[in-house]
Write a protein that binds this DNA or RNA. Structure first.
Lengths: 242, 242
DNA sequence: CGGAACATTGATAGAGCTCAAGGAACGTGG
DNA sequence: CCACGTTCCTTGAGCTCTATCAATGTTCCG
């Protein structure tokens, strides 16, 4: 049972732009199928040249880079709506790996159609650049946090950021959102050791600022988190969906 | 005296793709002028919505983000060939600032023409996405270095990376390349304090691994630097130039 | 029951930060 | 020509934050 693009569950979210009839026709042709994967499944490998592009429909995952010494940097979290494989699509090679952390459902696109998209669908082409620029923005923000902030600040920044992404795609419920990651994943995302990540989380729990259990993150005192992280979280504009 | 795109000095470099006649015509129309600036001149401001896009022709600069507490993260170095303002172009707002550190000459493009580019020049549109994806790649690499490496490793990684960029655009001379930045800039790029940056540089100088004086960086022992940084520097493929 | 995966906690050490001071190079004005 | 301010680089000392090492606890599953 493949979801028709016209009934795309993501598209209904406020966060996404609507699609014209013509655009819909193209998307239907561009989409070649759906993929369901189990937790832990690798979706894209650094250095590979995937023939397929994906948009996450359901579930969550991780983008990460591995170092020769075995260390790992989590580059970003993958949420519904994330477009995967753009680097391979335009540069011919993925610069990071992607793997599922929950069961996921993904739209599958044919990379060889990408060039047609640029020729016949300039709006979609523009959207792709938008997505790449947005990814650049996120990474710049992460770089700034990791480069300039203390462990406590990074933690508040990272969890606030994740929470607001969940809000935008309708996954949050009040001050709660899913967080299906291990502390090790969070540590690798924030550039901290596992032990220190755990202790930092504990402090925030003791102060009643948040709770995190059974894969559910609950931000009890966002204002204080924003104060600690020295940021006010922006509300993003309408975003495209490929 | 405005440089004609046909005689673009960058275009002659090996690193860049060549341009067809039609493409040349478009570039000439897209380019609205040239801009010369002194060191220290701000080119783009975070949060601004610049009506102009730039390609650096000569000189060097910095991309950076400022934090409310006054700290600064240098997000990337700007070299000849760098395209500036894409975020404002597609997202409507710059997510970092850009400023010149040396005298610079820049090609100026009209942002309002960007949409025409997507409609009538799919190759160029593809190139823009390529550039954005490349920027994403660089940032991911920087994030990984800063998140997972020691000060010495980051230093070797950062300087090697800068040197190879210079090689690619013909600015290197043997093991030497220009490096017109203060140690404070380097510190802000690597997420280190100024003092520790200085001491780390000193260690590398004492070991005869590099020298850095009068704005000239000289990598005397790149192999050892690669060993320290745990990387082998990739040689990039042909890149587009906008 | 035993093992695996993950979370938690304590102890210790060290990498890197901050503070403080001094030196070198350069431009400006008297 | 010299005094002075500014900017940047350099160096030392002390301290703190975070990493590492080591154990234990918990849950889940075969």
């Amino acid at each position: 049972m493949v979801t028709d693009c016209a009934n795309c569950p993501l598209r209904k979210q406020d966060a996404y732009e609507t699609l014209s009839g013509d655009e819909l026709t193209f998307m239907r042709r561009f989409k070649v199928g759906e993929l369901k994967v189990d937790p832990g499944t690798p979706l894209l490998m650094e250095g590979s040249n995937s023939p397929q592009l994906f948009t996450a429909l359901k579930g969550m995952g991780l983008r990460y880079k591995l170092l020769p010494n075995g260390r790992r940097q989590v580059v970003n979290f993958v949420l519904p709506g994330s477009f995967l494989g753009l680097q391979a699509g335009v540069m011919g090679e993925m610069k990071h790996s992607v793997e599922a952390t929950t069961p996921m459902v993904l739209c599958v696109f044919d990379r060889s159609e990408l060039w047609n998209l640029y020729k016949s669908e300039p709006e979609r082409a523009f959207d792709l650049t938008w997505l790449a620029a947005m990814e650049e923005h996120f990474l710049g923000e992460a770089l700034t946090s990791i480069g300039q902030m203390s462990a406590m600040q990074r933690m508040c920044w990272g969890l606030l950021r994740f929470y607001t992404r969940c809000v935008d795609i309708g996954l949050a419920d009040g001050d709660r959102c899913p967080f299906p990651y291990r502390q090790q994943d969070l540590a690798d995302a924030l550039g901290l050791s596992l032990v220190h990540t755990n202790k930092t989380l504990m402090k925030l729990r003791e102060k009643q600022i948040l709770s995190l259990e059974d894969g559910i993150l609950s931000l009890r005192d966002m204002e204080q988190m924003e104060e600690i992280a020295l940021i006010e979280i922006e509300r993003p504009a309408k975003r495209p969906l490929i």
